[in-house]
Structure formats: structure tokens, C-alpha cells
Simulated assay, not measured.
Amino acid sequence: MTRTLYYTATSLDGFIATSEHSLDWLVSRDNDPAGPMGYDVFFAQIGALVMGASTYAWVTEQLDGDWPYDQPTWVLTHRDFPTPADGVDVRFRSGNVAELHPEMVAAAASKDLWVVGGGDLAGQFAERGLLDAVQVSVAPVTLGAGAPLLPRQVELRLTGVARNRDFACLSYDVVR
């Protein structure tokens, strides 16, 4: 069964990016992608992705236009963006996530759907009862301001705690 997961990292004070949309504070930290709650283990279970415009812009800028994902990806935006390359399955959409969710789940082909970012987008899925779990790695830094982790009230139940080098890793199920 496909689950909709918000997998991300946050500063200790609850921000996923600086006010300038920078993740420099994150990429400079030590972690093991194959370690506890690491990216490699997580990503192996992903069949489709969804992200907001700021996340898409950051990914394409950081990777000089090279697209890192083979899975179908939805970008929820009102902005105009170029598609990264021929043969890449990126779908630009706007509107209610509840209306798009069945299409995303079908494309995930029994694997999970990853809400890549941002926090407001994850909150939209949560508000509509579509978010199943939150997995967050907490970095040892405070930012003071920026893009919040999850700017909605969402009830969660802790299901896992681990340490991955510099990160405290927390796994939650969404309580409905």
C-alpha cells in the first residue's frame, strides 16, 4: 500500500531552509546515507515525488539542471519553469492536492509517495488527511528564521528515534 511521507531535515529551531532558501547549513553536516533513517534506505521505497516551487528551483539550481530522480515528479506551482531535460517525467500542476493525490499514488506503483518539500505543501496533504508519516532529521544548528518545518497543527505519534552522525532522526505516524 502506498503511503504519503514527508521526509526532510530541519534545524533545531524548526526551519527547513533559511529565509533566502539556502540549505548550506544542512549540506555541510555529516550523515551516513545508508545509516539509521538515512536517505538511501528511504529512497529505495519511493515510487513518485511531489514538491513545491521553491524546492524545485533549489534542486535545479544546485544540480545545474541535471535532474536527480527517475520517478514521476509533480511540482505544485503557479510559476513557469522549464522541464529539466527530455525524457524526464516532471509534471507542473496547481490546485488542490486532494484532487492530484490519486494520480500520484497510481504513478508510485505500490511504492511510497515522497512529499519532498516544503513544509506548507506537507501541511496541505496533512489537512486533507493524505499525509501518513513524517520522518525528520534534526541538525545541530539554529537558523532563527526561514521556511518552517510544518506550519500547521498536525498530531503525530512517535514511532522511531535514531542517531545518524550529526543528526537526531525522528519518525512519526500522523494521527487521524
Rank of each mutant, 00 (worst) to 15 (best):
S137Q: 15
L121Y: 12
L143P: 12
M104Y: 01
A168N: 15
V141R: 01
F81C: 01
L131M: 03
Q135M: 14
H78M: 00
D120Q: 15
V175T: 12
T55Q: 06
D120V: 11
V75C: 10
G119D: 03
D173F: 05
A122V: 12
Q124K: 13
W74Y: 08
A98M: 13
L170C: 15
P84G: 04
L150A: 05
V134T: 11
F167Y: 13
S54H: 08
W114R: 05
R176E: 06
M51E: 12
L131D: 11
A139H: 13
L170M: 15
F81V: 09
L131P: 13
K111Y: 11
G118Y: 07
P72R: 05
L150H: 05
Q45Y: 04
A108V: 03
Y7A: 06
L23I: 08
G52H: 02
F167V: 10
L5H: 07
W67A: 04
L121S: 11
L170N: 14
R79G: 00
D32E: 07
L121T: 13
W74A: 01
V116C: 03
S94Y: 00
D30T: 11
G160K: 13
N96H: 15
A126C: 07
G119K: 05
T73K: 03
T55E: 04
V115G: 02
G35D: 11
Q71P: 09
A126D: 10
F15D: 01
V134I: 14
G47E: 06
A53P: 02
P140Q: 08
A107C: 02
G65N: 03
Y39G: 04
P33Y: 04
A162W: 13
T83H: 08
Y172V: 10
D64K: 03
L149N: 10
L150S: 05
A106Y: 01
S110Q: 00
Q71A: 10
Y56D: 10
T2E: 03
A98H: 13
A107P: 05
A162K: 14
L143N: 06
V115A: 02
L131A: 07
F81Q: 07
Y7N: 10
I46Y: 01
L63E: 09
Q45M: 09
P151N: 09
Q62D: 14
R128E: 15
E103A: 13
F125Q: 08
F167D: 10
A48R: 08
T83W: 00
Y172L: 11
D24M: 01
L63M: 09
W74V: 09
S110T: 11
R128Y: 07
E99Q: 05
V138N: 06
R128G: 10
R93I: 10
A107W: 01
M1G: 09
L5C: 14
R29P: 01
L76W: 03
A106V: 02
P148R: 14
D173R: 12
D70A: 12
G35I: 09
P33F: 08
N31W: 14
G123D: 12
V41E: 08
F167M: 12
G87T: 12
V88I: 06
L12C: 13
T8E: 06
D112I: 03
M1K: 01
